[in-house]
């Protein structure tokens, strides 16, 4: 019940591990404060009637408590930094130049060693849909299909207002801001269908701005990509034929469109 959605990428599993650590620390702090409060009250009630004891002799304890808390804060900070690095914070603030320079580094070698290539998906948020474009120009709305085990780079953009892309268990949350590209990387390691949504208020139908990520095997991904590409080509061909036959407006009316 207290568990987040199961992780389906290494980013997701680092996030979930740190979540459990943070929850444990938070639970201990909440318990200490509330149990302390109640027990102090009981002690205070017990001494009812007696005159308040002298109090000014305990300055030193403040420093001890402060030092202890400082150690706790530093410890939590270090753990936070370690897990942020492991979950891949380098994904934030990656402009085009930055990501190229990163590609020159050890990442490329490691990938080359595994014979892997990063799959770049141009992801664009618009009121109230997500549009995914694959390297070969094929695109899809709402549903993103990914091959399992291959590193993915989501290049987030927005065509209108601020959106925030997140699929629990798979990635971090990231803002899609108009005029900027926000790159985030992860590698899905489990096949399955994962539901996500937009997490930034974006106007009237914000609640319906949802998405699905379907992680499939390499072969199935290739098959789907070809199918989707063929479907899109068919649709475009149909429109072109209609235009050739009836002119541009006739084609739109035929399709039931037009605004």
């Amino acid at each position: 019940m207290l568990a987040p959605d199961p992780a389906s990428s290494s980013t997701g599993s680092e996030i979930n591990t740190l979540y459990w650590i943070a929850l444990a620390i938070a639970a201990v702090l909440i318990l200490l404060i509330n149990v302390g409060l109640i027990s102090m009250l009981v002690r205070g009630r017990a001494s009812k009637g007696s005159s308040p004891a002298g109090t000014r002799a305990r300055r030193g304890t403040t420093f001890a408590v402060g030092g202890l808390l400082a150690v706790l804060a530093i410890g939590v900070f270090v753990v936070g930094v370690v897990f942020t690095e492991k979950a891949g914070v380098e994904t934030t603030a990656a402009s085009a130049a930055d990501s190229e320079s990163q590609m020159d580094g050890s990442d490329t070698e490691a990938m080359a060693a595994r014979g892997e290539k990063t799959l770049q998906i141009l992801t664009s948020g618009q009121q109230w849909l997500w549009r995914y474009q694959y390297p070969d120009g094929t695109f899809s709305y709402y549903e993103l299909v990914l091959p399992v085990g291959q590193p993915v780079e989501i290049e987030l953009e927005s065509t209108d207002v601020l959106h925030r892309w997140w699929v629990p268990g798979l990635s971090q949350k990231a803002d899609a801001v108009p005029g900027k590209t926000h790159v985030l990387k992860f590698t899905p390691d489990t096949e399955g269908t994962f539901e996500g949504a937009s997490y930034a208020f974006s106007g009237a139908n914000y609640a319906t701005m949802r998405t699905v990520v379907r992680v499939v095997s390499e072969d199935e991904f290739e098959r789907w990509l070809d199918e989707q590409g063929a479907d899109i080509a068919d649709a475009q061909k149909w429109v072109q034929d209609e235009i050739a036959e009836n002119g541009p407006y006739g084609a739109i009316e035929e399709a039931g469109g037009g605004q």
Partner: peptide, 14 residues
Amino acid sequence: MMQSLIPVNWLLAG
């Protein structure tokens, strides 16, 4: 405090 840890924030914020 939990949400100020960056990865947990990615999980809980919003």
